[in-house]
């Protein structure tokens, strides 16, 4: 089976989501990575994890990935090199590319997957629904290329010790009106301490904190535990903290050693982003809150009483 992986980079290296997908893909078939941009800096790492070849569009000149990379993929496919399967990290760019390509190829797309199985020419993917309690397996029908997007941390990235991948140019064709959007400036929201999706300990706050100022308790606790602060969608939507703090369906997927949920009821939207944590501690005043259904340790109590005491106890150590 010929598989393409939409490969993304950050700070000059492939993203962890990319390497997870390449690792999985190499167990299923022959892997080619597809990069939006210049691949010279990442070809070695992509090869090391199992990509034999890298298609690269070259500099996108500020064009958004969705329309540009999908255009370049379509051009390669029309040129005769069609894969059987294309897999995408479930990121903003990954979703845009797979959506545009879905229309260009007139092929269905399956997103939010966490598993994949290949038997002969048949490809099936697994998707958790209802907060991850139910797993749905869906099989592609018809002919490929099949298109599927996977949540971060669905697979474990492991080096294959491969040689640097051969880079082949896949230029972006004329996009006409569809290529009208241009990035004019990039803003990175800096945060100190470990990254949210890599931290061994994550402390998240939710609506139960009551007001934006109280989020400072979450940051203090995270710092004391050398962890990262996170948030539920409710308080991101309310503007208390930036989107980059959000854990859940529409935010980051985290799998830390310890996840502390403070004042979070456990909406489906949130649970799918954190239920892979090894240990879950929940503090919530509503004992019926769904979060207690997955907590290893649950404290039914007021976060405004429990957190200050917890912070004080840890500061005293």
């Amino acid at each position: 089976m010929k598989i393409w992986v939409f490969a993304q980079e950050a700070a000059g290296a492939p993203t962890s989501g990319t390497l997870e997908l390449i690792t999985k893909a190499r167990s299923l078939g022959d892997v080619t990575a597809f990069v939006g941009g210049d691949a010279s800096g990442v070809a070695a790492a992509l090869g090391e994890y199992g990509a034999a070849k890298v298609y690269a569009t070259g500099d996108l000149g500020g064009k958004l990935h969705g329309v540009a990379v999908a255009g370049a993929m379509k051009a390669v496919i029309d040129g005769g090199d069609a894969p059987d399967l294309i897999v995408f990290p479930q990121t903003t760019e990954g979703r845009d590319v797979v959506a545009r390509l879905s229309v260009k190829l007139d092929k269905t797309v399956l997103t939010n997957n966490t598993g994949i199985a290949v038997e002969g020419d048949t490809v099936s993917v697994t998707t958790p629904i209802f907060g991850g309690n139910t797993l749905v397996t869906t099989t592609f029908t018809g002919t490929g290329p099949f298109l599927a997007a996977f949540r971060p941390k669905s697979f474990v990235a492991e080096s294959a010790g491969g040689a640097a991948a051969e880079v082949v140019a896949a230029p972006v064709p004329d996009l006409g009106a569809t290529g009208g959007a241009t990035v004019t400036a990039v803003h990175v929201e800096e945060s100190s301490g470990p990254k949210l999706d890599e931290a061994a300990i994550v402390v998240s706050g939710g609506r139960g904190l009551g007001e934006a100022d109280k989020y400072a308790m979450i940051e203090t606790l995270a710092k004391l535990l050398k962890g990262a602060p996170g948030a539920s969608r409710a308080i991101v939507d309310a503007g208390w903290v930036p989107y980059s703090y959000q854990v859940g369906q529409t935010g980051k997927v985290v799998k830390p050693t310890v996840y502390i949920a403070a004042g979070i009821s456990g909406a489906t939207q949130h649970m799918v982003g954190m239920k892979g944590a090894k240990n879950i501690i929940a503090i919530n005043k509503d004992k019926e809150a769904p979060i207690f259904g997955i907590a290893d340790l649950g404290i039914v109590g007021d976060v405004h009483k429990v957190l200050p005491k917890l912070i004080e106890a840890l500061q005293g150590r």
């Binding site: 950050a10 958004l64 990121t91 903003t92 009208g180 959007a181 241009t182 990035v183 004019t184 400036a185 990039v186 803003h187 990175v188 929201e189 930036p242 980059s244």
Partner: peptide
């Protein structure tokens, strides 16, 4: 993933 981009269209 890390912040935001200014985009014109």
């Amino acid at each position: 993933e890390d912040g935001y981009d200014d985009v014109t269209c």
